[in-house]
């Protein structure tokens, strides 16, 4: 069946993020003024409001910061997925990002806050892949 969930529309300052994701890599913007990576990508850093920024490749390691187990699909594209896990993960580099946890049996017992995760990429169109996380 065709993929019918909402699709991200890459913008100028996030093209690199989405291009790298399609290659199976997670890249972050990094503020060279303070040395901290940040999410989501934007040209001027939110920590220092500095233009002295670049891109770094993330390790793909993260821990589970919080989550919910969605029982009622919020959109027709998710009807076949429920129950599914929405989550905020803390990347090894520091920033937090929204994602899904890819897990066979999504129960509170199987989802411990602080558990180790690693990035996986789900191809959703010919151009786009979504970074998701699974138990490491």
């Amino acid at each position: 069946m065709a993929y019918n969930k909402p699709l991200p529309v890459p913008q100028g300052e996030s093209d690199v993020y989405w291009q790298k994701a399609k290659q199976g890599e997670l890249w972050l913007r990094n503020c060279k003024s303070c040395g901290n990576a940040y999410f989501y990508p934007r040209d001027i850093s939110p920590c220092c409001f500095s233009k002295d920024t670049d891109w770094i490749q993330a390790s793909g390691k993260a821990t589970l910061f919080t989550y919910g187990i969605v029982q009622r699909a919020p959109h027709p594209g998710f009807v076949d997925d429920v129950p599914f896990v929405t989550a905020v993960v803390e990347l090894e580099e520091g920033p937090k990002m929204a994602t899904n946890i890819v897990i066979e049996d999504p129960t509170p017992e199987n989802l411990q806050i602080g558990m180790a995760l690693e990035v996986v990429f789900e191809d959703i169109t010919d151009e786009l892949a979504l970074p998701k996380f699974k138990p490491a």
Binding site: K5, P6, Q11, D81, T86, A98
Partner: peptide, 12 residues
């Protein structure tokens, strides 16, 4: 940003 970095994951 939300349309790119949250809604694709069902943060709706």
């Amino acid at each position: 940003p939300g349309s790119q970095f949250e809604t694709p994951y069902g943060f709706l």
